[in-house]
Structure formats: structure tokens, C-alpha cells
């Protein structure tokens, strides 16, 4: 049994507040990340007794795992997934190294407009009709979830986006067809 010393967990309140809203704490959130990193055992013991499942991803982020989303969150998550996959395709089409560009390039409004224009019928399904819709409905929410950070002139994606890439690799025709039956 891990001893939980609440006095040691100085950022507990801040961390809890962030995590319960679905936020991913990554290395860019220096203070909280270090705190979690140092007392990971205590934190995960504490959170699991509170009914949360604190996950540490070795690519550098912490989050609460959940096996279901509320319908609204589900919709947001799908929009983010679509955006990430379209970004990968877009970078590959423009001859960039998609994985590098995904994390190194600033996503500005112009890029968002291009993405929406080129994939209009996909974004239409999610009621995203313009670059500013994409910014509002996807990028700002990604910030709230810790998947991106705002920089000068746009947004940059962060390590937790790997969750979507993992999900991407999980998709194959069989899973889809299997579900259909």
C-alpha cells in the first residue's frame, strides 16, 4: 500500500482540476508535469481510490483514461480525430514529413481554411463550415484538452495527439466491417 502524504502533493488541486476536465498534462506544463513525475505512485494511488484511472504515456503526458465519452465529448473527439488525420494527409501531400510537420509546424488560420476547403464534405458532417469554425470547434478545444498550445500566429500540437495516431493505427477494414454485422 502506497503511503499518500497529502502535504507532499502540493499541486494536487491544480492537477485534479485539470485532469477531471479531460486535460492532458504534458511536458509543456512544466510545474504540474514535474510534480506528477516525482510523485507518480502517490498520485495514481490517490486518484484510483477516487475512481479515476491516471495514465502515464511514455511519450510524455498524463491523463485520466475513460472508456466512454459523453455524446458531446464524443463529437468533439471525432472532430479532433478527423482534423489530425487530415493534417497528416495534407502534410504528406505537400511533400513534408508528416510526423515531423505535425508537431513542428504552426497551424494558422490559413492552413485551417485550406483544410476545411479541401475536405468540405467531411467537415460538413461535423458542422464545421469554415476555417474559423475549425479554430473554434477544434483547436480551442484541443487547447482545453491539452492537445495543443497557442503560439504566435496559431496553434502547435503536442504529444498527447499520439492518442489519435494510436487510434488511427487501430482502424482497419475488419474492425469496421466487424462492427457492421
Amino acid at each position: 500500500m502506497t503511503q499518500i502524504n497529502l502535504h507532499e502533493l502540493t499541486h494536487l488541486q491544480a492537477i485534479n482540476k485539470k485532469l477531471v476536465t479531460g486535460y492532458h498534462i504534458s511536458e509543456q506544463d512544466t510545474l504540474m508535469w514535474q510534480e506528477l513525475d516525482q510523485h507518480i505512485e502517490q498520485y495514481s494511488a490517490l486518484f484510483s481510490s477516487l475512481g479515476h484511472d491516471l495514465q502515464h504515456d511514455s511519450r510524455g503526458f498524463y491523463y485520466f483514461a475513460s472508456d466512454e465519452s459523453t455524446p458531446n465529448m464524443g463529437k468533439i473527439s471525432r472532430a479532433i480525430a478527423l482534423t489530425v488525420y487530415i493534417l497528416i494527409e495534407h502534410y504528406a501531400n505537400t511533400g513534408k514529413d508528416p510526423m515531423r510537420a505535425l508537431f513542428d509546424e504552426v497551424n494558422d488560420l490559413e492552413l485551417m481554411q485550406t483544410l476545411v476547403q479541401m475536405n468540405k464534405h467531411l467537415f460538413d458532417q461535423l458542422e464545421i463550415f469554415s476555417g474559423s469554425d475549425l479554430r473554434k470547434d477544434v483547436y480551442l478545444r484541443m487547447i482545453r484538452l491539452g492537445l495543443a498550445r497557442e503560439v504566435e500566429g496559431g496553434f502547435m500540437l503536442q504529444a498527447p495527439v499520439y492518442r489519435y495516431i494510436d487510434a488511427l493505427m487501430e482502424v482497419n477494414e475488419e474492425t469496421y466491417l466487424g462492427e457492421d454485422e
Binding site: M73, R78, A81, E89, L122, A167, E173
Partner: peptide, 27 residues
């Protein structure tokens, strides 16, 4: 894979395709 999945999404619709695999968040 991204190209393939996007192809499937175009064919089957966003919600159909992604609902089963999307990551979930605590809210």
C-alpha cells in the same frame, strides 16, 4: 493508414467510422 482511414471515412461517414476508435476523455 491516414489515407486509408480518410478514404473509409469519405465512404462511410465520419461518425460511423470514428465512433469506435476515437480516444475518450474524462469530462
Amino acid at each position: 493508414q491516414a489515407a486509408k482511414v480518410l478514404g473509409l471515412i469519405r465512404k462511410n461517414g465520419v461518425d460511423n467510422m470514428l465512433s469506435s476508435v476515437q480516444p475518450h476523455f474524462v469530462s
